[in-house]
C-alpha cells in the first residue's frame, strides 16, 4: 500500500513538472489520470512487489555513469570505423561471461551496460552467467576482462 502511495505521489509530481498548468480543472484531470495509473499498476501487481528501492551507492553511481559514457564513446568510434571501412574485419562471436553481482538490480544494470556499449549485446542472463553477442574479438575481450563487471559489483551495497 505504501508503495502505491509513493507511486501516486511520484506520478503526480511528474505530471505537474511536465504540464506546468495550475488550473483547478486541469489539476483534477491530472489527479484522475494519476489514480488510473496507480489502479492499473495495482491490478497488474507491480505496485507492491517490484517497488525495490535502489540498493546502490548513489554517489558512486554518477562516477560509474561518467565512466560508462566514456566507454560508450570509445566503443561507438570503434564500431563506426568497422562499418565505414570494409577492410576491418567483422568476426561475430557468442559466449558466456561470469556475473558477480549479488542483487537483481545490479545484474540488470550490468547486462544493460553491456548492451548499451555498441559492439556487445547481452542476450540472456541465467544464474551467474550472461550470454553476450560481440561484433568482433576486441569488443568480446573487453567484456571477458571483467572490468565493467567489477565496477558494477562495486556499486552494490
Amino acid at each position: 500500500m505504501l508503495h502505491a502511495i509513493y507511486l501516486g505521489l511520484a506520478s503526480f509530481s511528474l505530471w505537474l513538472l511536465l504540464s506546468g498548468y495550475f488550473e483547478i480543472f486541469l489539476l483534477s484531470l491530472g489527479l484522475l489520470s494519476t489514480c488510473l495509473v496507480v489502479y492499473i499498476a495495482r491490478r497488474m501487481d507491480v505496485a507492491d512487489h517490484e517497488g525495490r528501492s535502489l540498493h546502490m551507492h548513489v554517489f558512486r553511481l554518477f562516477g560509474y555513469w561518467a565512466w560508462l559514457g566514456m566507454e560508450i564513446v570509445k566503443a561507438n568510434l570503434d564500431v563506426t570505423r568497422r562499418i565505414l571501412d570494409p577492410r576491418l574485419p567483422i568476426s561475430p562471436e557468442v559466449f558466456w561471461s561470469p556475473v558477480t553481482q549479488g542483487s537483481e538490480v545490479g545484474r540488470v544494470a550490468y547486462a544493460n551496460s553491456i548492451t548499451l556499449t555498441p559492439g556487445t549485446v547481452a542476450i540472456d542472463l541465467e544464474g551467474d552467467e550472461v550470454e553476450v553477442h560481440a561484433l568482433n574479438r576486441e569488443a568480446a575481450d573487453g567484456v571477458r576482462s571483467g572490468e565493467m563487471d567489477r565496477k558494477v559489483t562495486a556499486l552494490d551495497l
Binding site: 561507438n76 567483422i90 556499449t117 559492439g119 553477442h133
Partner: peptide, 16 residues
C-alpha cells in the same frame, strides 16, 4: 551481414 551484427548498428543510432 546478419541480424545480430545489425543490432550493434542500431545501438549506434540509439546511444551516440
Amino acid at each position: 551481414p546478419d541480424f545480430f551484427t545489425r543490432l550493434h548498428a542500431a545501438g549506434i543510432i540509439d546511444t551516440m
